[in-house]
Design a protein around this nucleic acid. Structure first.
Length: 548
RNA sequence: GUCUCCGUAGCUCAACUGGAUAGAGCAACUGCCUUCUAAGCAGUAGGUUGCGUGUUCAACUCACGCCGGAGACGCCA
Protein backbone atom coordinates (compact mmCIF):
# COMPACT_ATOMS: atom_id res chain seq x y z
CA UNK A 1 0.00 0.00 0.00
CA UNK A 2 3.02 2.26 0.36
CA UNK A 3 3.26 3.11 -3.32
CA UNK A 4 -0.40 4.12 -3.56
CA UNK A 5 -0.03 6.27 -0.44
CA UNK A 6 3.01 8.07 -1.66
CA UNK A 7 1.52 8.52 -5.13
CA UNK A 8 -1.48 10.31 -3.65
CA UNK A 9 0.65 12.49 -1.38
CA UNK A 10 3.14 13.48 -4.04
CA UNK A 11 0.42 14.18 -6.56
CA UNK A 12 -1.29 16.50 -4.12
CA UNK A 13 1.87 18.39 -3.32
CA UNK A 14 3.25 18.58 -6.84
CA UNK A 15 -0.22 19.34 -8.17
CA UNK A 16 -0.48 22.33 -5.86
CA UNK A 17 2.96 23.47 -6.97
CA UNK A 18 1.96 23.12 -10.62
CA UNK A 19 -1.23 25.04 -10.01
CA UNK A 20 0.76 27.96 -8.62
CA UNK A 21 2.66 27.92 -11.89
CA UNK A 22 -0.63 28.06 -13.77
CA UNK A 23 -0.94 24.39 -14.68
CA UNK A 24 -4.20 22.58 -13.98
CA UNK A 25 -5.15 18.92 -13.89
CA UNK A 26 -1.88 17.19 -14.44
CA UNK A 27 -0.96 13.96 -12.77
CA UNK A 28 2.37 12.36 -12.10
CA UNK A 29 3.44 8.77 -11.86
CA UNK A 30 5.45 7.14 -9.13
CA UNK A 31 7.74 4.36 -10.24
CA UNK A 32 10.15 1.93 -8.80
CA UNK A 33 13.63 2.79 -10.03
CA UNK A 34 15.86 0.21 -11.70
CA UNK A 35 17.73 -2.05 -9.33
CA UNK A 36 21.10 -0.39 -9.76
CA UNK A 37 19.76 2.88 -8.38
CA UNK A 38 19.72 3.38 -4.64
CA UNK A 39 16.25 4.77 -4.14
CA UNK A 40 12.82 3.43 -3.22
CA UNK A 41 10.61 5.46 -5.51
CA UNK A 42 10.89 7.95 -8.35
CA UNK A 43 8.49 10.70 -9.46
CA UNK A 44 8.39 12.21 -12.93
CA UNK A 45 6.76 15.47 -11.76
CA UNK A 46 9.68 17.75 -12.62
CA UNK A 47 9.86 16.46 -16.19
CA UNK A 48 6.14 16.86 -16.79
CA UNK A 49 5.99 20.36 -15.34
CA UNK A 50 9.17 21.50 -17.05
CA UNK A 51 7.83 20.32 -20.37
CA UNK A 52 4.61 22.31 -20.00
CA UNK A 53 6.50 25.41 -18.89
CA UNK A 54 9.22 24.86 -21.48
CA UNK A 55 11.91 25.16 -18.89
CA UNK A 56 14.71 23.12 -17.40
CA UNK A 57 13.54 20.13 -15.28
CA UNK A 58 16.57 20.47 -13.01
CA UNK A 59 15.33 23.78 -11.57
CA UNK A 60 11.81 22.49 -11.06
CA UNK A 61 13.18 19.35 -9.41
CA UNK A 62 15.26 21.40 -6.98
CA UNK A 63 12.22 23.36 -5.86
CA UNK A 64 10.03 20.26 -5.64
CA UNK A 65 12.58 18.41 -3.56
CA UNK A 66 12.60 21.18 -1.01
CA UNK A 67 8.83 21.15 -0.81
CA UNK A 68 8.63 17.36 -0.56
CA UNK A 69 11.10 17.25 2.30
CA UNK A 70 9.32 20.03 4.12
CA UNK A 71 5.80 18.64 3.65
CA UNK A 72 6.54 14.96 4.26
CA UNK A 73 9.20 14.84 6.96
CA UNK A 74 7.81 11.58 8.38
CA UNK A 75 7.78 9.88 5.01
CA UNK A 76 10.87 10.84 3.09
CA UNK A 77 14.40 10.60 4.37
CA UNK A 78 16.20 11.56 1.18
CA UNK A 79 15.34 13.10 -2.18
CA UNK A 80 17.59 13.85 -5.11
CA UNK A 81 17.60 14.61 -8.80
CA UNK A 82 18.63 11.89 -11.17
CA UNK A 83 18.70 11.08 -14.84
CA UNK A 84 16.63 13.25 -17.11
CA UNK A 85 14.91 14.90 -14.18
CA UNK A 86 13.52 12.15 -12.01
CA UNK A 87 13.21 12.85 -8.34
CA UNK A 88 14.45 9.81 -6.49
CA UNK A 89 13.09 9.26 -3.02
CA UNK A 90 14.19 7.19 -0.12
CA UNK A 91 11.45 6.58 2.37
CA UNK A 92 11.94 6.32 6.11
CA UNK A 93 12.39 2.88 7.62
CA UNK A 94 9.48 3.57 9.98
CA UNK A 95 7.10 3.60 7.02
CA UNK A 96 8.29 0.15 5.99
CA UNK A 97 8.01 -1.15 9.53
CA UNK A 98 4.48 0.18 9.81
CA UNK A 99 3.55 -1.64 6.62
CA UNK A 100 5.08 -4.83 7.98
CA UNK A 101 2.88 -4.52 11.06
CA UNK A 102 -0.15 -3.97 8.85
CA UNK A 103 0.56 -7.28 7.12
CA UNK A 104 0.94 -9.05 10.46
CA UNK A 105 -2.37 -7.61 11.68
CA UNK A 106 -4.46 -8.07 8.55
CA UNK A 107 -2.93 -11.44 7.65
CA UNK A 108 -4.48 -13.03 4.55
CA UNK A 109 -6.87 -10.06 4.26
CA UNK A 110 -3.97 -7.72 3.50
CA UNK A 111 -4.68 -5.79 0.33
CA UNK A 112 -8.46 -6.24 0.52
CA UNK A 113 -10.65 -3.22 0.00
CA UNK A 114 -14.06 -3.33 1.62
CA UNK A 115 -15.15 -0.42 -0.57
CA UNK A 116 -15.35 -2.73 -3.59
CA UNK A 117 -17.81 -5.19 -2.13
CA UNK A 118 -20.92 -3.65 -3.58
CA UNK A 119 -19.95 -4.45 -7.14
CA UNK A 120 -21.10 -7.80 -8.50
CA UNK A 121 -18.76 -9.26 -11.07
CA UNK A 122 -19.19 -12.42 -13.08
CA UNK A 123 -16.28 -14.29 -14.53
CA UNK A 124 -17.39 -16.83 -17.10
CA UNK A 125 -14.75 -19.27 -18.25
CA UNK A 126 -13.96 -22.73 -19.59
CA UNK A 127 -17.55 -23.27 -20.81
CA UNK A 128 -16.33 -26.14 -22.95
CA UNK A 129 -18.96 -28.18 -24.77
CA UNK A 130 -19.73 -31.38 -22.87
CA UNK A 131 -18.64 -33.52 -25.80
CA UNK A 132 -15.36 -34.73 -24.38
CA UNK A 133 -12.77 -34.25 -21.66
CA UNK A 134 -11.07 -30.88 -21.22
CA UNK A 135 -7.93 -30.48 -23.24
CA UNK A 136 -4.83 -28.51 -22.48
CA UNK A 137 -6.19 -25.33 -24.09
CA UNK A 138 -9.17 -25.36 -21.74
CA UNK A 139 -6.65 -25.67 -18.96
CA UNK A 140 -5.16 -22.33 -19.82
CA UNK A 141 -8.57 -20.66 -19.78
CA UNK A 142 -9.37 -22.40 -16.50
CA UNK A 143 -6.16 -21.26 -14.84
CA UNK A 144 -6.50 -17.66 -16.01
CA UNK A 145 -10.22 -17.36 -15.26
CA UNK A 146 -10.03 -18.98 -11.86
CA UNK A 147 -7.04 -16.93 -10.75
CA UNK A 148 -8.50 -13.69 -12.06
CA UNK A 149 -11.65 -14.41 -10.08
CA UNK A 150 -9.55 -15.07 -6.97
CA UNK A 151 -7.70 -11.79 -7.44
CA UNK A 152 -10.92 -9.81 -7.88
CA UNK A 153 -12.41 -11.52 -4.84
CA UNK A 154 -9.34 -10.61 -2.82
CA UNK A 155 -9.75 -7.02 -3.94
CA UNK A 156 -13.15 -7.15 -2.28
CA UNK A 157 -15.50 -7.61 -5.24
CA UNK A 158 -18.52 -9.86 -5.08
CA UNK A 159 -17.37 -12.39 -7.66
CA UNK A 160 -19.33 -15.26 -9.22
CA UNK A 161 -17.58 -17.90 -11.32
CA UNK A 162 -19.80 -19.45 -13.94
CA UNK A 163 -19.54 -22.24 -16.49
CA UNK A 164 -21.86 -21.93 -19.46
CA UNK A 165 -22.90 -25.35 -20.59
CA UNK A 166 -23.66 -25.65 -24.29
CA UNK A 167 -25.87 -28.69 -23.94
CA UNK A 168 -28.10 -27.78 -26.87
CA UNK A 169 -27.58 -28.08 -30.58
CA UNK A 170 -26.20 -30.20 -33.30
CA UNK A 171 -23.03 -31.31 -31.58
CA UNK A 172 -25.12 -32.94 -28.85
CA UNK A 173 -26.88 -35.03 -31.48
CA UNK A 174 -23.56 -36.04 -32.95
CA UNK A 175 -22.40 -37.01 -29.48
CA UNK A 176 -25.50 -39.12 -28.86
CA UNK A 177 -25.12 -40.81 -32.26
CA UNK A 178 -21.45 -41.52 -31.59
CA UNK A 179 -22.18 -43.26 -28.29
CA UNK A 180 -25.06 -45.17 -29.79
CA UNK A 181 -22.89 -46.38 -32.66
CA UNK A 182 -20.20 -47.57 -30.26
CA UNK A 183 -22.89 -49.26 -28.24
CA UNK A 184 -24.04 -51.15 -31.31
CA UNK A 185 -20.47 -51.98 -32.27
CA UNK A 186 -20.02 -53.85 -29.02
CA UNK A 187 -22.46 -56.47 -30.36
CA UNK A 188 -21.64 -56.08 -34.03
CA UNK A 189 -18.16 -54.97 -34.99
CA UNK A 190 -19.31 -53.94 -38.42
CA UNK A 191 -22.04 -51.59 -37.25
CA UNK A 192 -21.62 -48.19 -38.95
CA UNK A 193 -20.06 -45.21 -37.19
CA UNK A 194 -21.10 -41.65 -38.09
CA UNK A 195 -18.57 -39.95 -40.32
CA UNK A 196 -18.20 -36.82 -38.19
CA UNK A 197 -18.70 -38.65 -34.91
CA UNK A 198 -16.53 -38.22 -31.82
CA UNK A 199 -13.89 -40.90 -31.85
CA UNK A 200 -12.26 -40.53 -28.45
CA UNK A 201 -11.67 -43.44 -26.14
CA UNK A 202 -14.19 -41.98 -23.69
CA UNK A 203 -17.04 -42.57 -26.15
CA UNK A 204 -16.37 -46.29 -26.10
CA UNK A 205 -16.18 -46.22 -22.32
CA UNK A 206 -19.58 -44.61 -22.01
CA UNK A 207 -21.00 -47.12 -24.46
CA UNK A 208 -19.51 -49.96 -22.48
CA UNK A 209 -21.00 -48.68 -19.24
CA UNK A 210 -24.41 -48.55 -20.87
CA UNK A 211 -24.02 -51.98 -22.44
CA UNK A 212 -23.04 -53.48 -19.10
CA UNK A 213 -26.44 -52.53 -17.77
CA UNK A 214 -28.02 -54.91 -20.28
CA UNK A 215 -31.04 -52.70 -20.83
CA UNK A 216 -33.24 -52.28 -23.85
CA UNK A 217 -31.65 -49.95 -26.37
CA UNK A 218 -34.89 -48.09 -26.84
CA UNK A 219 -34.95 -47.14 -23.17
CA UNK A 220 -31.56 -45.50 -23.27
CA UNK A 221 -31.29 -41.72 -23.58
CA UNK A 222 -27.84 -41.64 -25.16
CA UNK A 223 -27.48 -37.88 -25.06
CA UNK A 224 -28.39 -37.62 -21.41
CA UNK A 225 -26.13 -40.49 -20.41
CA UNK A 226 -23.19 -39.19 -22.42
CA UNK A 227 -23.47 -35.66 -21.04
CA UNK A 228 -23.81 -37.00 -17.53
CA UNK A 229 -20.60 -39.01 -17.83
CA UNK A 230 -18.63 -36.35 -19.62
CA UNK A 231 -19.70 -33.65 -17.21
CA UNK A 232 -18.64 -35.79 -14.29
CA UNK A 233 -15.23 -36.17 -15.93
CA UNK A 234 -14.94 -32.43 -16.57
CA UNK A 235 -15.85 -31.61 -12.98
CA UNK A 236 -13.37 -34.11 -11.61
CA UNK A 237 -10.59 -32.81 -13.85
CA UNK A 238 -11.30 -29.22 -12.80
CA UNK A 239 -11.32 -30.22 -9.15
CA UNK A 240 -7.89 -31.77 -9.53
CA UNK A 241 -6.83 -28.48 -11.11
CA UNK A 242 -8.13 -26.55 -8.09
CA UNK A 243 -10.83 -24.89 -10.16
CA UNK A 244 -14.36 -24.61 -8.86
CA UNK A 245 -17.47 -22.85 -10.12
CA UNK A 246 -20.22 -21.09 -8.21
CA UNK A 247 -22.72 -21.85 -10.92
CA UNK A 248 -23.21 -24.13 -13.92
CA UNK A 249 -25.55 -22.45 -16.33
CA UNK A 250 -27.29 -24.70 -18.83
CA UNK A 251 -28.06 -23.36 -22.28
CA UNK A 252 -31.20 -25.50 -22.15
CA UNK A 253 -32.56 -23.11 -19.54
CA UNK A 254 -32.75 -20.24 -21.99
CA UNK A 255 -33.38 -22.33 -25.11
CA UNK A 256 -36.09 -24.72 -23.88
CA UNK A 257 -37.67 -23.51 -20.64
CA UNK A 258 -40.85 -21.62 -21.42
CA UNK A 259 -42.73 -18.98 -19.50
CA UNK A 260 -46.51 -18.67 -19.15
CA UNK A 261 -46.80 -17.34 -22.70
CA UNK A 262 -44.91 -20.33 -24.07
CA UNK A 263 -41.80 -18.31 -24.84
CA UNK A 264 -38.18 -19.11 -24.09
CA UNK A 265 -35.66 -16.50 -23.03
CA UNK A 266 -34.11 -16.75 -26.47
CA UNK A 267 -37.52 -15.98 -28.02
CA UNK A 268 -37.90 -12.98 -25.75
CA UNK A 269 -34.41 -11.64 -26.30
CA UNK A 270 -34.89 -11.76 -30.07
CA UNK A 271 -38.30 -10.12 -29.80
CA UNK A 272 -36.81 -7.42 -27.63
CA UNK A 273 -34.16 -6.64 -30.22
CA UNK A 274 -36.67 -6.77 -33.05
CA UNK A 275 -39.02 -4.35 -31.27
CA UNK A 276 -36.11 -2.02 -30.65
CA UNK A 277 -35.19 -2.13 -34.30
CA UNK A 278 -31.85 -3.80 -33.67
CA UNK A 279 -32.98 -7.00 -35.40
CA UNK A 280 -34.91 -7.40 -38.62
CA UNK A 281 -36.29 -10.08 -40.91
CA UNK A 282 -34.78 -10.63 -44.31
CA UNK A 283 -35.05 -13.71 -46.57
CA UNK A 284 -37.16 -15.36 -43.84
CA UNK A 285 -34.24 -15.17 -41.42
CA UNK A 286 -33.88 -12.86 -38.41
CA UNK A 287 -30.79 -10.70 -38.56
CA UNK A 288 -28.94 -8.79 -35.86
CA UNK A 289 -28.07 -5.29 -37.04
CA UNK A 290 -24.60 -5.54 -35.56
CA UNK A 291 -23.14 -3.20 -38.19
CA UNK A 292 -24.65 -0.40 -36.09
CA UNK A 293 -21.94 -1.08 -33.55
CA UNK A 294 -18.94 -1.61 -35.72
CA UNK A 295 -19.40 -5.14 -37.03
CA UNK A 296 -18.55 -5.55 -40.69
CA UNK A 297 -21.82 -7.29 -41.46
CA UNK A 298 -25.11 -8.16 -39.85
CA UNK A 299 -25.44 -11.59 -38.30
CA UNK A 300 -28.15 -14.19 -38.36
CA UNK A 301 -30.05 -14.85 -35.14
CA UNK A 302 -32.69 -17.21 -36.48
CA UNK A 303 -32.29 -19.18 -39.67
CA UNK A 304 -34.91 -19.25 -42.37
CA UNK A 305 -35.93 -22.72 -41.18
CA UNK A 306 -36.78 -21.29 -37.77
CA UNK A 307 -33.81 -22.68 -35.83
CA UNK A 308 -31.87 -20.22 -33.70
CA UNK A 309 -28.16 -19.74 -34.16
CA UNK A 310 -25.61 -19.94 -31.40
CA UNK A 311 -25.54 -16.14 -31.33
CA UNK A 312 -29.21 -15.95 -30.35
CA UNK A 313 -28.52 -18.09 -27.29
CA UNK A 314 -25.59 -15.88 -26.45
CA UNK A 315 -27.69 -12.74 -26.60
CA UNK A 316 -30.24 -14.27 -24.27
CA UNK A 317 -27.52 -15.57 -21.99
CA UNK A 318 -25.86 -12.17 -21.62
CA UNK A 319 -29.22 -10.54 -21.08
CA UNK A 320 -29.84 -13.08 -18.37
CA UNK A 321 -26.50 -12.29 -16.73
CA UNK A 322 -27.24 -8.59 -16.55
CA UNK A 323 -30.73 -9.30 -15.22
CA UNK A 324 -29.12 -11.22 -12.38
CA UNK A 325 -27.57 -7.96 -11.21
CA UNK A 326 -24.00 -8.20 -12.41
CA UNK A 327 -22.55 -4.83 -13.24
CA UNK A 328 -19.45 -6.24 -14.83
CA UNK A 329 -19.17 -9.33 -16.99
CA UNK A 330 -15.85 -10.91 -17.79
CA UNK A 331 -15.70 -13.62 -20.44
CA UNK A 332 -12.66 -15.73 -21.11
CA UNK A 333 -12.57 -17.00 -24.64
CA UNK A 334 -10.02 -18.82 -26.67
CA UNK A 335 -8.55 -16.58 -29.36
CA UNK A 336 -10.36 -18.60 -32.01
CA UNK A 337 -13.53 -16.83 -30.88
CA UNK A 338 -12.19 -13.38 -31.50
CA UNK A 339 -14.47 -12.81 -34.48
CA UNK A 340 -17.28 -12.98 -31.97
CA UNK A 341 -16.18 -10.07 -29.81
CA UNK A 342 -17.53 -7.26 -31.97
CA UNK A 343 -20.96 -8.76 -32.31
CA UNK A 344 -21.34 -9.65 -28.65
CA UNK A 345 -20.23 -6.13 -27.75
CA UNK A 346 -22.90 -4.88 -30.14
CA UNK A 347 -25.46 -7.06 -28.34
CA UNK A 348 -24.50 -5.66 -24.96
CA UNK A 349 -25.03 -2.13 -26.19
CA UNK A 350 -28.32 -3.03 -27.87
CA UNK A 351 -29.48 -4.49 -24.59
CA UNK A 352 -28.91 -1.05 -23.11
CA UNK A 353 -25.67 -1.55 -21.23
CA UNK A 354 -22.37 0.25 -21.33
CA UNK A 355 -19.83 -1.23 -23.67
CA UNK A 356 -17.36 -1.34 -20.77
CA UNK A 357 -19.62 -3.56 -18.70
CA UNK A 358 -18.51 -6.55 -20.75
CA UNK A 359 -14.86 -7.41 -20.94
CA UNK A 360 -13.89 -10.28 -23.20
CA UNK A 361 -10.45 -11.62 -22.46
CA UNK A 362 -9.05 -13.59 -25.33
CA UNK A 363 -6.32 -16.01 -24.48
CA UNK A 364 -4.14 -17.25 -27.27
CA UNK A 365 -4.31 -20.92 -27.95
CA UNK A 366 -1.86 -23.39 -26.59
CA UNK A 367 0.19 -25.13 -29.21
CA UNK A 368 1.46 -28.48 -28.16
CA UNK A 369 4.89 -29.71 -28.99
CA UNK A 370 5.84 -33.33 -28.73
CA UNK A 371 9.15 -34.77 -29.85
CA UNK A 372 9.96 -31.30 -31.15
CA UNK A 373 6.98 -31.36 -33.48
CA UNK A 374 3.54 -29.76 -33.23
CA UNK A 375 0.94 -32.17 -31.89
CA UNK A 376 -2.68 -32.08 -33.06
CA UNK A 377 -5.33 -31.03 -30.62
CA UNK A 378 -8.71 -31.79 -32.08
CA UNK A 379 -11.71 -32.86 -30.05
CA UNK A 380 -12.93 -34.68 -33.12
CA UNK A 381 -9.92 -36.77 -33.90
CA UNK A 382 -9.63 -38.14 -30.40
CA UNK A 383 -5.90 -37.51 -30.48
CA UNK A 384 -5.94 -34.51 -28.19
CA UNK A 385 -3.93 -34.18 -25.03
CA UNK A 386 -6.21 -33.86 -22.06
CA UNK A 387 -5.76 -31.47 -19.17
CA UNK A 388 -5.88 -34.45 -16.83
CA UNK A 389 -3.00 -36.11 -18.61
CA UNK A 390 -0.74 -33.10 -18.14
CA UNK A 391 -1.86 -32.45 -14.56
CA UNK A 392 -1.21 -36.06 -13.61
CA UNK A 393 2.21 -35.86 -15.18
CA UNK A 394 3.61 -32.50 -13.99
CA UNK A 395 1.36 -31.80 -11.04
CA UNK A 396 -1.37 -29.25 -10.48
CA UNK A 397 0.91 -26.59 -9.00
CA UNK A 398 3.49 -26.59 -11.77
CA UNK A 399 0.80 -26.75 -14.43
CA UNK A 400 -1.13 -23.75 -13.09
CA UNK A 401 2.00 -21.72 -12.53
CA UNK A 402 3.17 -22.53 -16.03
CA UNK A 403 -0.11 -21.33 -17.57
CA UNK A 404 -0.03 -18.14 -15.52
CA UNK A 405 3.55 -17.31 -16.32
CA UNK A 406 2.50 -15.50 -19.49
CA UNK A 407 0.02 -12.82 -20.44
CA UNK A 408 -3.20 -14.23 -21.93
CA UNK A 409 -2.63 -12.63 -25.32
CA UNK A 410 0.75 -14.21 -25.66
CA UNK A 411 0.88 -17.47 -27.52
CA UNK A 412 1.90 -20.37 -25.37
CA UNK A 413 4.08 -23.15 -26.55
CA UNK A 414 3.58 -26.13 -24.34
CA UNK A 415 6.37 -28.60 -24.77
CA UNK A 416 5.00 -31.85 -23.37
CA UNK A 417 8.37 -33.50 -22.96
CA UNK A 418 9.76 -30.45 -21.20
CA UNK A 419 6.71 -30.01 -18.98
CA UNK A 420 6.81 -33.63 -17.99
CA UNK A 421 10.41 -33.59 -16.90
CA UNK A 422 10.25 -30.09 -15.52
CA UNK A 423 9.82 -31.13 -11.90
CA UNK A 424 12.86 -29.63 -10.24
CA UNK A 425 13.74 -26.80 -12.59
CA UNK A 426 10.27 -25.31 -12.58
CA UNK A 427 10.09 -21.78 -11.13
CA UNK A 428 7.18 -22.77 -8.95
CA UNK A 429 9.59 -24.71 -6.72
CA UNK A 430 11.78 -21.67 -6.31
CA UNK A 431 8.78 -19.86 -4.87
CA UNK A 432 7.44 -22.72 -2.78
CA UNK A 433 10.91 -23.23 -1.36
CA UNK A 434 10.58 -19.88 0.40
CA UNK A 435 7.66 -21.13 2.42
CA UNK A 436 9.46 -24.39 3.23
CA UNK A 437 12.52 -22.53 4.47
CA UNK A 438 10.38 -20.18 6.57
CA UNK A 439 8.54 -23.08 8.13
CA UNK A 440 11.77 -24.75 8.98
CA UNK A 441 12.99 -21.67 10.83
CA UNK A 442 9.72 -21.25 12.67
CA UNK A 443 9.90 -24.87 13.79
CA UNK A 444 13.47 -24.43 14.96
CA UNK A 445 12.58 -21.20 16.78
CA UNK A 446 10.39 -23.14 19.20
CA UNK A 447 13.59 -24.07 21.02
CA UNK A 448 14.55 -20.43 21.49
CA UNK A 449 14.10 -19.16 25.00
CA UNK A 450 14.15 -15.64 26.39
CA UNK A 451 12.68 -14.05 23.29
CA UNK A 452 11.27 -10.63 24.20
CA UNK A 453 7.54 -10.11 23.80
CA UNK A 454 8.08 -6.50 22.75
CA UNK A 455 9.25 -6.32 19.14
CA UNK A 456 11.70 -3.64 18.04
CA UNK A 457 11.03 -3.32 14.31
CA UNK A 458 13.72 -0.68 14.08
CA UNK A 459 16.28 -3.48 14.15
CA UNK A 460 15.25 -4.51 10.63
CA UNK A 461 17.45 -2.10 8.79
CA UNK A 462 19.86 -4.00 6.53
CA UNK A 463 19.63 -3.64 2.78
CA UNK A 464 18.22 -7.16 2.45
CA UNK A 465 15.57 -6.55 5.09
CA UNK A 466 14.47 -3.28 3.53
CA UNK A 467 14.23 -4.91 0.11
CA UNK A 468 12.25 -7.80 1.49
CA UNK A 469 9.74 -5.57 3.27
CA UNK A 470 9.36 -3.39 0.18
CA UNK A 471 8.68 -6.51 -1.84
CA UNK A 472 6.05 -7.63 0.66
CA UNK A 473 4.34 -4.25 0.39
CA UNK A 474 4.40 -4.51 -3.40
CA UNK A 475 1.77 -7.23 -3.05
CA UNK A 476 -0.82 -4.44 -3.20
CA UNK A 477 0.70 -2.92 -6.32
CA UNK A 478 0.53 -6.31 -8.00
CA UNK A 479 -3.12 -6.66 -7.08
CA UNK A 480 -4.02 -3.35 -8.64
CA UNK A 481 -1.89 -4.10 -11.69
CA UNK A 482 -3.79 -7.34 -12.19
CA UNK A 483 -7.05 -5.47 -11.90
CA UNK A 484 -5.97 -2.79 -14.34
CA UNK A 485 -4.74 -5.27 -16.94
CA UNK A 486 -7.38 -7.91 -16.12
CA UNK A 487 -4.72 -10.55 -15.91
CA UNK A 488 -3.43 -12.53 -12.93
CA UNK A 489 -0.13 -13.39 -14.58
CA UNK A 490 1.71 -10.53 -12.84
CA UNK A 491 1.63 -12.57 -9.66
CA UNK A 492 3.98 -15.18 -11.01
CA UNK A 493 6.58 -12.51 -11.72
CA UNK A 494 5.86 -10.92 -8.35
CA UNK A 495 6.36 -14.20 -6.52
CA UNK A 496 9.66 -14.86 -8.24
CA UNK A 497 10.89 -11.41 -7.22
CA UNK A 498 9.69 -11.93 -3.68
CA UNK A 499 11.43 -15.32 -3.58
CA UNK A 500 14.59 -13.70 -4.85
CA UNK A 501 14.45 -11.05 -2.12
CA UNK A 502 13.81 -13.72 0.48
CA UNK A 503 16.62 -16.06 -0.54
CA UNK A 504 19.04 -13.14 -0.50
CA UNK A 505 17.84 -12.16 2.96
CA UNK A 506 18.22 -15.78 4.06
CA UNK A 507 21.86 -15.87 3.01
CA UNK A 508 22.82 -12.56 4.59
CA UNK A 509 20.65 -12.28 7.67
CA UNK A 510 20.57 -15.16 10.08
CA UNK A 511 17.20 -15.27 11.76
CA UNK A 512 18.06 -17.37 14.79
CA UNK A 513 21.08 -15.55 16.21
CA UNK A 514 22.70 -14.51 19.47
CA UNK A 515 20.65 -11.35 19.86
CA UNK A 516 17.16 -12.19 21.21
CA UNK A 517 15.74 -8.82 20.15
CA UNK A 518 16.97 -9.16 16.59
CA UNK A 519 15.85 -12.79 16.46
CA UNK A 520 12.36 -11.82 17.59
CA UNK A 521 11.97 -9.06 15.01
CA UNK A 522 13.31 -11.25 12.20
CA UNK A 523 10.87 -13.97 13.18
CA UNK A 524 8.12 -11.41 12.72
CA UNK A 525 9.46 -10.63 9.28
CA UNK A 526 9.40 -14.35 8.45
CA UNK A 527 5.82 -14.53 9.65
CA UNK A 528 4.88 -11.74 7.24
CA UNK A 529 6.71 -13.45 4.37
CA UNK A 530 4.72 -16.61 4.98
CA UNK A 531 1.45 -14.68 5.01
CA UNK A 532 2.21 -13.02 1.69
CA UNK A 533 3.65 -16.10 -0.02
CA UNK A 534 0.68 -18.22 0.97
CA UNK A 535 -1.84 -15.55 0.01
CA UNK A 536 -0.21 -14.83 -3.34
CA UNK A 537 0.18 -18.52 -4.20
CA UNK A 538 -3.45 -19.07 -3.24
CA UNK A 539 -4.45 -16.38 -5.74
CA UNK A 540 -2.79 -18.50 -8.40
CA UNK A 541 -4.34 -21.69 -7.04
CA UNK A 542 -0.94 -23.05 -6.13
CA UNK A 543 -0.24 -24.71 -2.80
CA UNK A 544 2.42 -23.68 -0.30
CA UNK A 545 3.92 -26.87 1.14
CA UNK A 546 5.57 -26.66 4.56
CA UNK A 547 8.24 -29.16 3.65
CA UNK A 548 10.00 -29.89 0.42
C1' G B 1 -8.77 -10.29 -49.29
C1' U B 2 -10.42 -8.15 -44.19
C1' C B 3 -9.55 -8.51 -38.98
C1' U B 4 -7.09 -10.18 -34.05
C1' C B 5 -2.70 -11.65 -31.39
C1' C B 6 2.50 -12.43 -31.32
C1' G B 7 7.93 -11.32 -32.78
C1' U B 8 12.80 -9.17 -26.79
C1' A B 9 19.52 -13.33 -24.55
C1' G B 10 20.81 -20.19 -27.28
C1' C B 11 15.33 -21.77 -25.26
C1' U B 12 10.57 -20.16 -22.61
C1' C B 13 8.94 -15.51 -21.26
C1' A B 14 8.86 -10.47 -18.12
C1' A B 15 9.35 -5.35 -18.26
C1' C B 16 4.71 -1.92 -13.03
C1' U B 17 0.72 0.45 -19.75
C1' G B 18 5.83 6.23 -22.39
C1' G B 19 10.88 6.52 -18.24
C1' A B 20 17.02 5.88 -16.14
C1' U B 21 22.41 0.95 -17.94
C1' A B 22 15.79 -3.83 -21.32
C1' G B 23 15.20 -8.18 -16.72
C1' A B 24 14.00 -13.48 -14.74
C1' G B 25 13.99 -18.90 -15.20
C1' C B 26 16.24 -22.86 -17.99
C1' A B 27 20.84 -24.19 -20.63
C1' A B 28 26.73 -22.86 -20.26
C1' C B 29 31.02 -21.48 -17.18
C1' U B 30 33.55 -20.09 -11.98
C1' G B 31 33.23 -20.06 -6.73
C1' C B 32 30.28 -21.04 -1.76
C1' C B 33 27.42 -26.30 2.68
C1' U B 34 31.00 -28.18 10.84
C1' U B 35 25.42 -23.09 12.30
C1' C B 36 17.78 -21.81 10.47
C1' U B 37 16.51 -26.94 3.93
C1' A B 38 22.42 -26.03 -1.63
C1' A B 39 15.08 -27.02 -4.97
C1' G B 40 19.75 -21.85 -2.32
C1' C B 41 23.52 -17.72 -2.79
C1' A B 42 27.62 -14.83 -5.24
C1' G B 43 29.80 -14.10 -9.96
C1' U B 44 30.96 -14.65 -15.65
C1' A B 45 29.02 -14.86 -20.47
C1' G B 46 24.89 -13.97 -23.57
C1' G B 47 20.86 -8.05 -26.95
C1' U B 48 20.91 -3.23 -33.17
C1' U B 49 13.84 -5.52 -28.52
C1' G B 50 11.95 -8.70 -36.69
C1' C B 51 12.97 -4.22 -40.34
C1' G B 52 12.04 0.98 -41.50
C1' U B 53 9.80 5.87 -40.91
C1' G B 54 7.38 9.13 -37.63
C1' U B 55 5.50 11.40 -32.69
C1' U B 56 8.27 12.62 -27.85
C1' C B 57 12.80 15.64 -23.32
C1' A B 58 12.30 10.06 -23.29
C1' A B 59 9.88 4.31 -27.55
C1' C B 60 10.15 -2.83 -26.27
C1' U B 61 5.79 0.25 -25.27
C1' C B 62 2.24 4.96 -29.33
C1' A B 63 1.14 5.82 -35.15
C1' C B 64 1.99 4.27 -40.20
C1' G B 65 4.36 0.79 -43.68
C1' C B 66 6.86 -3.70 -44.67
C1' C B 67 8.75 -9.03 -43.19
C1' G B 68 7.78 -13.52 -40.43
C1' G B 69 4.55 -16.86 -37.17
C1' A B 70 -0.36 -18.30 -35.10
C1' G B 71 -5.55 -17.76 -35.51
C1' A B 72 -10.52 -15.87 -36.90
C1' C B 73 -13.82 -14.30 -40.67
C1' G B 74 -20.61 -19.61 -42.85
C1' C B 75 -28.30 -19.05 -42.35
C1' C B 76 -21.23 -24.16 -38.21
C1' A B 77 -21.28 -25.04 -33.09
Amino acid sequence: MIKQQITVKLNAIAGKYAKEKGLENISFTVEIPPKNIDADFAVNAAMIIAKKLKTNPQNIAKELIEIFLKELPDFISKAEIAGAGFINLRIKDEILHKELQAILEQKEKYGSLASNNKEKIMVEFVSANPTGPLHIGHGRGAAIGDSLARVLKHLGYDVTKEYYLNDVGNQMLVLADSVKAKYLQIKDKNAPFPQDGYKGEYIAEIAKRLADKNGNINDIDFKKEAVKDILATIKADLKDFAVSFDNWFSEGKIAFDKDADGKTEVDKACEYLQNKGDAYVCDDALWLASTKFGDDKDRVLRRSDGRYTYLASDVAYHKNKFERGFSKLINLWGADHHGYVTRINACVQMLGFQKESLKVILYQLVSLIRDGKPAAMSTRSGEFITLKEVVDEVGKDACRFFFLLRAPDSQLEFDLDLAKKQSSENPVFYVQYVNARCNSIVKESKNEKNLPSEIDYGLLSTKEERELIKQLAAFCDTLSLCEKTMSPHHFTAYLMELADAYHKFYEKCRVLNDDPNLTASRLKLIEAVMIIIKTALALLGVSAPEKM
